[in-house]
Design a protein around this nucleic acid. Structure first.
Lengths: 172, 172
DNA sequence: TGAAATGCGCTAGCGGTGCTAGATTCGTGG
DNA sequence: CCACGAATCTAGCACCGCTAGCGCATTTCA
């Protein structure tokens, strides 16, 4: 699993084949299938740990920068995506099986989202904080994915981040 | 190409294999490689046509609903993504080769983005309209992808859309 | 008109993928 | 000391994207 994460970060998920993974952990290929249902399950476990880490970093950001929690959360979110692009990819583009937004979703997922909801709550006004949190999440996720594929203008990253934060703030 | 698009919409891009595609168009598999550099090139062409269609629909929405252009654009964008999920997927998740945000990007791509920029320009205030357009685009794209994977709460789609539109509007 | 050249589509195959069936080895309990 | 059960292996299946090389029809030119 750690090997899968490392290999994915080094060469992308496309390079994480069951044969290479088996070779790296010095076992034969079928052994993987006695511990995981398949390749998707391996990605899902890496992704779930990623959500736990993301929740942790969002909480730390909120604690360390209480006077500007939205900016802190946005920076932490994007920082995580930048630092662990493959894990982020697994969390949002590869792990199709993970349930979300339901009470039976894995705890790390619910915790990560709860952090965002708490952060934006003071700025929600008439809007449901959960809705605003989902909108902020969408904007950050879109920013990450579009930036990653080189689809946004270069050099304006900070301006975009400031614009997002600025859109949330005036709702006080 | 039209066959590729239809098959992708019906069963997803994973089902679009060169063998199935060749069988459907009643040619042998290698013929595809005399017209396209590879599977990615096929997706890219479908994606580029998708951008042209998106630009067209954004322009129509702006013309038909001039008193609320941001809502019109957002609705049109999400409507396109809903109506053609596989094409949208090809445009933003599969076609890695398409250049963006540069003068030499394909025309349909620049036109689609220009529509967004024109739409948000009146609401930009001190912000560069292009930056605000990129932020709106990010939010809409994030909304589409997160919704598609079932990662946002169910039944609140309209509320999220209203929240996004509401965030842009107060900048007048 | 006959022959050469050209271009198109074909069959067959390469190296790779996720995944699985069946044989085999090895530690452990009777 | 033997039998059992779990863990691991070798070998292979069906599929993937992609390509080399052949055969045939058409076109071109002497």
């Amino acid at each position: 699993m750690q090997t899968a994460r490392d290999l994915a970060e080094a060469e992308g998920w496309a390079a994480v084949t069951t044969r290479r993974l088996a070779e790296l952990i010095e076992f034969s290929q079928p052994v993987l299938y006695t511990h995981f249902a398949g390749k998707d399950a391996i990605i899902a476990v890496v992704a779930e740990r990623g959500f736990a880490q993301l929740a942790e970093e969002l909480a730390r950001a909120r604690a360390e920068w209480p006077e500007d929690p939205v900016r802190a959360a946005a920076s932490a979110y994007i920082g995580f995506a930048d630092a662990s692009p493959a894990v982020y990819d697994g969390m949002f583009s590869r792990a199709t099986g993970l349930r979300f937004a339901t009470p039976d979703a894995p705890a790390p997922l619910r915790e990560a989202f709860a952090e965002l909801r708490i952060t934006v709550a003071p700025y929600a006004g008439d809007t449901d904080p959960a809705i605003l949190a989902e909108v902020l999440w969408s904007a950050l996720h879109g920013l990450v994915t579009l930036t990653r594929d080189g689809r946004l203008s270069e050099g304006n990253h900070k301006a975009r981040l400031a614009a997002i934060v600025g859109l949330i703030r005036p709702q006080i």
